[in-house]
């Protein structure tokens, strides 16, 4: 169940749109922010708010890379594997991350803190290799800097799950 206030905000967003569907991505992102990932329950709520079926929400949710239909850790770690970051040696960073976190690509750490996924591209091709943890970018990485970034993110706790839409 989402709080009444959030529901009202989302309904207002839909009302502002030219068509309800136009607000679909915003609604999914806000629900994901609330739940941490887009749960089945959230899909149902999105469907109700948007006047769509759950399947129709699913059709959209599964298309976008930043909508998660499976549980993820408190913070998403995106590692850019684009050609520029490849050229800058992202593979070394990825191996290091996998070893540090004890997960494969797509996996969530045992403590539920991080989920590691590749992504392309982050539009910071001059600063590779780089990752984002939550909404923070860490660029020009070396393995040492990765360790520092992880340390920093662990300390900053699990309060704020990543949310791209809350710009």
């Amino acid at each position: 169940m989402i709080p009444e206030q959030l529901k009202k905000t989302l309904e207002a967003r839909v009302a502002h749109a030219f068509s309800a569907r136009e607000a679909a991505v915003d609604v999914m992102k806000d629900l994901q922010f609330h739940y941490g990932w887009l749960t089945d329950e959230a899909v149902g709520e999105a469907a109700e708010i948007l006047g769509l079926s759950r399947l129709q929400v699913e059709e959209l949710a599964t298309f976008y890379e930043m909508i998660y239909r499976r549980p993820v850790g408190n913070k998403m770690i995106h590692i850019c594997d684009s050609i520029s970051c490849w050229n800058a040696g992202y593979e070394k960073i990825l191996d290091h991350l996998k070893a540090r976190l004890g997960v494969e690509v797509g996996g969530t750490t045992a403590d539920g803190q991080f989920t590691l996924v590749p992504c392309c591209c982050m539009g910071r091709c001059g600063d590779g290799p780089l990752i984002s943890i939550g909404s923070t970018i860490y660029d020009n990485l070396t393995p040492e800097l990765v360790d520092q970034a992880l340390e920093l993110e662990r300390l900053s706790g699990s309060a704020a799950p990543e949310h791209q839409g809350q710009a």
Binding site: L52, S53, L55, Q56, E59, F63
Partner: peptide, 19 residues
Amino acid sequence: GTDFGVTGSAGRVYFGRFE
């Protein structure tokens, strides 16, 4: 109908229901 459609993308497009 609204309970059947296409989900996923690229090589993983899937034609089915929500559940």
